[in-house]
C-alpha cells in the first residue's frame, strides 16, 4: 500500500497531526469518519463496502454520493468500456439500502467534450435513483466552445463558468470550477471573479453551518509537479476558515487521498473509468494500466453521510469490484 501523504508536500509547515494513511489500493472500501475534527479510519469488509450497508451509518441526517471522472469516450487499454463501468457505478448507487438525497459529479464526465459522450453519460446517469445530480466540470468537459456545451447541459442557473451553491438540510454546498483560464506553468485556477463570488456567498452564513465544497482538481497541493493542486485555493479556503466544519471533495487524480487541516477535511474520489498512478510513481499522471480482472477494484464511488450537530461526516469509498 502506498503511503501518499507521508511527506509535507506543500512545505507549508502545517501540523500534520491527525493525518491518516489512506487505504487507496487496499481493494476494499474504507470508512472515514470525522468526529470533532479528529479523523478515524476503519477498513470495511468487502461485503459491507460494496453493499453500502446503511445500518453502519445509523443516525445520519442525510447522505449523498460522489461520483467522478467517468471519462465517457475514453477507450484505451486501461478501460476499453468506460460506459459499462459507469453503469456498474449506477447499479451500486441503486443497490444502497437507502437512496442518497442526490449525487455530486466532480467532473470529467466526458473524455473530449463530444455531444455523443455527454449524451451517453446523461443516459446512464439518468438511471441512478437519486433526487438529482449536481455537477462541476473537469478540464475534459470544457474543451470546445469555451465550455458552453457543458454549461447548457449541466450548468444551467450557475454563475460564470459553472460555479454555484445550494443549501440542503442545514448544510451549505459550494460547487467550484478550477479547470478554465489556466495560466502557463500554473495549476488549477479559480480566478478572481469566482473568488469574489465565493466571499460574498458565505458572508452571511453562520460559522456553525457545515460547508461542503466540491470541485474537480484538488484544492490542496497533492502533487504540484503533476499539476495536482489549485493555485489560488489558499485564498478560497481563507474565506472558509471561520466555519467549524468544512469538507472539500475533489476528483481528477483517480485515487483516494484524504487529509485534515484544522476544521477542513480534504478527500478525493476514485474514478469510474481508469486509475492513475500514485504521485511520482510513474513518468506521468496518464492512465494506469491494470490487469482486466483487477480494473474494478481500482474504480469506485464515495458515499457521504452527514450527521447534523455532531460535526460528523463519514465517507465510505467503495470500489466497483
Amino acid at each position: 500500500m502506498a503511503d501518499f501523504i507521508r511527506d509535507n508536500i506543500n512545505k507549508d509547515g502545517i501540523d500534520r497531526r491527525g493525518f491518516l494513511q489512506c487505504m487507496a489500493w487496499a481493494g476494499t472500501g474504507v470508512l472515514y469518519s470525522l468526529h470533532g475534527g479528529v479523523l478515524k479510519s476503519l477498513p470495511l469488509m468487502q461485503g459491507a463496502a460494496s453493499g453500502m450497508d446503511m445500518a453502519k451509518m445509523k443516525g445520519a441526517d442525510f447522505s449523498f454520493i460522489q461520483i467522478s471522472d467517468s471519462h465517457i469516450g475514453f477507450s484505451k487499454e486501461a478501460n476499453p468500456d468506460v460506459t459499462a463501468t459507469l453503469q456498474i457505478a449506477v447499479d451500486r448507487i441503486n443497490s444502497a439500502a437507502a437512496p442518497p438525497d442526490f449525487l455530486l459529479h466532480t467532473g470529467d464526465i466526458s473524455q473530449l467534450s463530444k455531444p455523443s459522450e455527454f449524451d451517453t453519460a446523461e443516459q446512464v446517469l439518468k438511471g441512478a435513483k437519486a433526487g438529482r445530480i449536481f455537477y462541476v466540470p473537469g478540464e475534459h468537459d470544457m474543451l470546445t466552445d469555451d465550455g458552453q456545451q457543458y454549461l447548457d447541459r449541466f450548468g444551467k442557473d450557475t454563475k460564470g463558468k459553472g460555479w454555484y451553491s445550494f443549501d440542503h438540510k442545514g448544510a451549505h454546498f459550494i460547487g467550484l470550477v478550477n479547470v478554465v483560464d489556466l495560466k502557463a506553468g500554473g495549476l488549477g485556477s479559480l480566478g478572481s471573479d469566482q473568488l469574489k463570488w465565493l466571499q460574498d456567498d458565505v458572508r452571511d452564513l453562520k460559522s456553525s453551518t457545515p460547508v461542503i465544497v466540491f470541485a474537480h482538481i484538488p484544492l490542496w497541493a497533492v502533487y504540484p509537479e503533476w499539476g495536482w493542486g489549485t493555485d489560488d485555493s489558499e485564498q478560497a479556503l481563507g474565506y472558509l476558515k471561520r466555519f467549524g466544519s468544512v469538507s472539500v471533495l475533489n476528483g481528477h487524480i483517480h485515487q483516494i487521498m484524504q487529509k485534515v487541516e484544522g476544521n477542513v477535511t480534504f478527500h478525493t474520489a476514485l474514478s469510474t473509468a481508469f486509475p492513475q498512478p500514485a504521485p511520482g510513481t510513474a513518468p506521468s499522471p496518464g492512465p494506469m494500466k491494470v490487469p482486466a480482472d483487477q480494473l474494478r477494484s481500482v474504480l469506485g464511488i464515495s458515499h457521504v453521510n452527514y450527521v447534523q450537530g455532531k460535526h460528523s461526516l463519514a465517507i465510505v469509498d467503495s470500489t466497483l469490484a
Binding site: 484505451k76 473530449l112 478540464e139 475534459h140 474543451l143 479547470v179 489556466l182 495560466k183 502557463a184 506553468g185 500554473g186 495549476l187 504540484p224 509537479e225 503533476w226 499539476g227
Partner: peptide, 25 residues
C-alpha cells in the same frame, strides 16, 4: 486526442512560449 496533429507556421522571428491549456504545467 491520441495521434492527432496540429501545425502552425511561424513567419516572424522571436521566442514563442506555449503550453497545454488543460495541463498548464
Amino acid at each position: 486526442d491520441t495521434d492527432d496533429r496540429f501545425s502552425f507556421t511561424f513567419t516572424k522571428p522571436g521566442t514563442y512560449n506555449y503550453y497545454c491549456a488543460i495541463h498548464p504545467k
